[in-house]
Design a protein around this nucleic acid. Structure first.
Lengths: 161, 161
DNA sequence: CTCATATCAGGCTTACTGACATCT
DNA sequence: CAGATGTCAGTAGGCCTGATATGA
């Protein structure tokens, strides 16, 4: 039998790490495509979603809650502000800070992105049954929280000044 | 109950695409660390493994079989040749080609990398039982080959001139 | 001529690092 | 003073595009 996955020339194709990174790559492509179709990218969604959950916040707070690096917040907010989805106003009570807030148009955009995203999940999991999807999600969740805790990753809620 | 994963400020953390890309990120880090410890990187392993499976081959053939882009073959082979792991000699029968071959030292290096890699798989799957590892591998394999075929990805063996 | 091969230069994305000025 | 905040510049890995020179 010809079994390409265990081909002598490509033994790595059976490794969990390979399966994981390759599948994630497909996932990433699907998500990016979906976002691209409305001139958005992953950071836009994450920032808008965080903003909806928190209400108006400083960039540092948004960075912590969204997991987007502070250095990348600047450009992300610039892009969203250009499109009128967020507003950046100086914080009068602490003049180091900007207060970022979600505009009505930004909220609509966010919901658009959420719909895209949920469609993408279906495309991604297309070949799996409902039970298998649950199983996969469960296993990945366990792996992720394990490695997050091992590497000292936040992954959770914590109060912010 | 405080359930951070369904936090209103980070709804995406429950999405399969997120779990997948994040877990893959951890996997990627673990693999890279392992390779870094012996001054190697992913491309080195893939090229050496392909070379062991095929025997001496042209760069174009290696590119197709390893999935490493032709443009990146040059630098990869340079790096491996500097370290004495492969040799690049002109092909007398087709003067466009170079013949790349594995040195004994390169073979030893490859086996070193393979050992690292197999340790890494264990680290990666640490929190899962044997059955769960099989289940995960199976689900990911199905996802991967589905998406590979959908996007018209090779993933298999085919003859080479 | 067309095609394959090897090379080079560069882009893109997602993180992250480091430096810096400003303010608390 | 230490520490937080926002900004800017730059890195690195993996993947990819395009241009070019050479030869089959």
């Amino acid at each position: 039998m010809k079994n390409p996955s265990e081909d002598t020339a490509a033994p790595w194709k059976a490794l969990p790490s390979w399966l994981l990174t390759q599948t994630a790559d497909h996932a990433h492509h699907l998500v990016s495509e979906g976002f691209n179709a409305v001139e958005a990218r992953g950071y836009h969604y994450r920032l808008l979603a965080t903003l909806e959950g928190l209400g108006p916040s400083s960039q540092a707070t948004l960075s912590r809650q969204s997991g987007i690096h502070v250095s990348d917040m600047v450009a992300t907010i610039n892009e969203l502000a250009e499109r009128g989805y967020v507003e950046r106003t100086p914080d009068m009570t602490d003049r180091r800070r900007n207060v970022i807030s979600l505009t009505p148009s930004g909220k609509r955009h966010l919901h658009r992105l959420e719909k895209r995203l949920s469609k993408t999940q279906d495309e991604l999991l297309a070949p799996l049954t409902v039970d298998e999807r649950k199983e996969l999600t469960e296993l990945l969740s366990r792996l992720l929280s394990y490695h997050n805790s091992v590497t000292g990753n936040p992954e959770n809620d914590w109060q912010d000044p």
